[in-house]
Amino acid sequence: MDKPTNYLYILDILKNEMSYSRQLLIKRSDISKVAIGILVAIMLFGFFVVGFDQGQLFSLVEGKQAFDSKWLHEFTHDMRHAAGFPCH
């Protein structure tokens, strides 16, 4: 993860006691874009759940009542205050 993006590999292949070389250009990303995408999604979702939800997530299944009951908001309520997010 700490090397430049593209590498040129010289592949030394030993076969039948004969030695020869061939060059192979491999394009590879040093940091997996898939991993970055997954982590960004986790970060945004987790941050929203703990720090910002006012009933929006549960309203997807519970409807408008979720904005009154705020079950998820109340579940993360104490961590929200402790971590410095605005609340109420």
Binding site: W71, D78, M79, R80
Partner: peptide, 20 residues
């Protein structure tokens, strides 16, 4: 309910920030 969510909230908060 709120105290019960303290540790779960901590885990979600922790994973969220560790992702970043």
């Amino acid at each position: 309910w709120q105290k019960g969510g303290e540790i779960v909230g901590g885990i979600i908060y922790g994973i969220s920030l560790s992702s970043l």
